[in-house]
Amino acid sequence: MRKRNVTGSVGGRLVVYAYALFLIAPIYFIIVTSLKMAGEVTTNPLGLPEYPIIGNFVEAFTRGNIAKYSFNSVIITGSAVILSLLNAIIVSFCLHKIAHKKIGVLFYAIIMGSMLIPGVGFVTLLQLYMKLHLYNNLLGPILMGATTGLPFNVFILVGFLRTLPKEISEAATIDGCNDRQHLFLVLLPLIKSALATLGIFAFVSNWNSLLGPLILLKNKELFTIPLGLLDFRGTYTVEYNYMFAAILITSVPLVVIYLRFQSYFVEALSGGVKG
């Protein structure tokens, strides 16, 4: 039993609890608002609802078309994440292999890609996507989501690959592995935690992505959840109660996924590294 380390200290726990309080205040507000009548949101924004209206959730679900939008979100986000990770794995692996050569500077060129300011290019982007038949169908946001995260993913993965001991790769080469086996059999299990982490990040950022699908999707049937949430904004007045109810409904799957995948990225690396 460790007695005097940071993980058990009282000060440490206090900070955690304080931060948890900081975290919960807005969430309390979201939950409380989602149960109110529209007028009460204005007259009593912070208090508990006078008559909690569970019907808000039903209204949000139907008017917000949540079933359909969730379906689109899941397809777009799921595909984007898988493609994104696949691409990141391949690119990172190759970059790692050529890191010592001159052409390894390609890595830095990719990273710099993340510093471009999006926004000005939207007209060109729209025209480009239209020419490639990626406009107003699910493929557009999927590919856009799959490519946007590349610099970040490569950045993390290459860094991770660098920390792996060279002995494993050398042992694999001696055993006569070709590259594909090397990547999939040897390295993949080792970087599982990094992949799970990147996967969660990619999922969350794609799920919440607004501007891309907004520009690329015209057909309301194809909208994702963030686009659907805009339905509750008027020109001046926002229908907070329905919007927050919709948000609570749509956050549930994300929390479930995070819980499910947490085990992957916090488990200590087993066997391979030490042995």
Partner: peptide, 14 residues
Amino acid sequence: LLFSLAACGGTKDE
């Protein structure tokens, strides 16, 4: 499969 479905959805609109 999904892509072809999605792509078809797009072209129909066009």
